[in-house]
Lab assay of single mutants.
Amino acid sequence: MATKAVCVLKGDGPVQGIINFEQKESNGPVKVWGSIKGLTEGLHGFHVHEFGDNTAGCTSAGPHFNPLSRKHGGPKDEERHVGDLGNVTADKDGVADVSIEDSVISLSGDHCIIGRTLVVHEKADDLGKGGNEESTKTGNAGSRLACGVIGIAQ
């Protein structure tokens, strides 16, 4: 089992970053940390998408990683996509320092995120509470600013 993974985020604009993942036990939580720069100040949706395909930019990554066919939600919700990591918060300089621990994603097994795409979005994720159909699919997080395929790390 891989215990570490990394993702280099890039987009068409100024947004870029490096996100690290570490899972010490196969059924334990995954620590997610790193930094994203070039964002507007505020909240930005942060999700693992189904495919590791960036051939047409971030759009070819498909929908959120959702092997259990659930509705979109927040990272602490029972009803959520596996890939729903909530929001990252950018400061006035456009930098989001990421520090998350998640017990639904994994670096092995059915919820493995390796080979899938991590995406940072234009807007805040409403965590499935926006009151419309799009909220239950995407959290109304808007366009995909930057993305990268999650790969095994040393």
Rank of each mutant, 00 (worst) to 15 (best):
G130M: 11
G86F: 04
D77A: 12
T3V: 12
V48D: 00
R70C: 14
A146P: 03
G38R: 05
G94I: 00
G151S: 10
K137W: 06
P67S: 04
C58L: 06
V48E: 00
I114C: 04
D77G: 08
K4P: 00
A90Q: 00
G139W: 05
D126M: 06
E134K: 06
D126Q: 07
S143C: 12
G28Q: 13
V95D: 11
G94S: 04
V149N: 04
I100C: 10
V88F: 06
E134W: 15
E101H: 03
K31P: 01
G13E: 06
C112L: 01
L145Q: 12
D97Y: 13
V30Q: 02
Q16V: 11
T55Y: 04
A5Y: 03
A56I: 14
N132A: 13
S103F: 09
G34N: 00
H111S: 11
Q23A: 05
D93T: 10
N132E: 10
S106F: 03
S106R: 09
N140D: 14
T59W: 13
K92P: 12
I113E: 02
G115A: 02
T136P: 11
R144F: 15
H72F: 08
T40A: 11
V120I: 11
D125G: 10
A56H: 07
V30T: 09
D110R: 13
S26Y: 15
I36F: 00
G109M: 01
L68T: 10
V30S: 04
K4R: 09
A124I: 12
S99W: 15
G130I: 05
E134V: 06
E79D: 14
E50H: 02
S108V: 10
V8D: 06
S143P: 12
I19F: 02
H47A: 04
G17R: 04
H64L: 05
H111E: 10
K129H: 09
E78A: 09
R116S: 05
D93A: 12
D91V: 03
V32G: 02
G139A: 09
F65A: 09
G128E: 04
G74M: 08
S60L: 11
G42Y: 00
G94P: 00
G109L: 00
H72D: 06
A5W: 00
S143H: 13
C112A: 09
S103E: 09
S106Q: 08
T138S: 10
K37D: 13
V149P: 04
G131E: 07
K71R: 11
Q16N: 12
D53E: 10
L43H: 07
G57N: 15
G128N: 03
A56R: 11
A2M: 09
S35I: 15
G52E: 11
A141V: 11
N87W: 14
V30E: 03
E133M: 05
G115M: 00
G17P: 01
K129Y: 07
V88Q: 02
H47L: 15
A124M: 09
K31Q: 04
N27W: 09
A2Q: 03
L118V: 08
T55E: 06
G86P: 00
T3W: 05
H49I: 14
H81R: 05
G128M: 11
C112H: 12
F65K: 06
K10M: 14
E133T: 09
N66E: 06
V82G: 03
N20W: 13
N132C: 12
D12Q: 11
I105E: 02
D93M: 10
V48F: 09
H64Q: 07
A5S: 05
S108D: 12
K92I: 09
A124G: 11
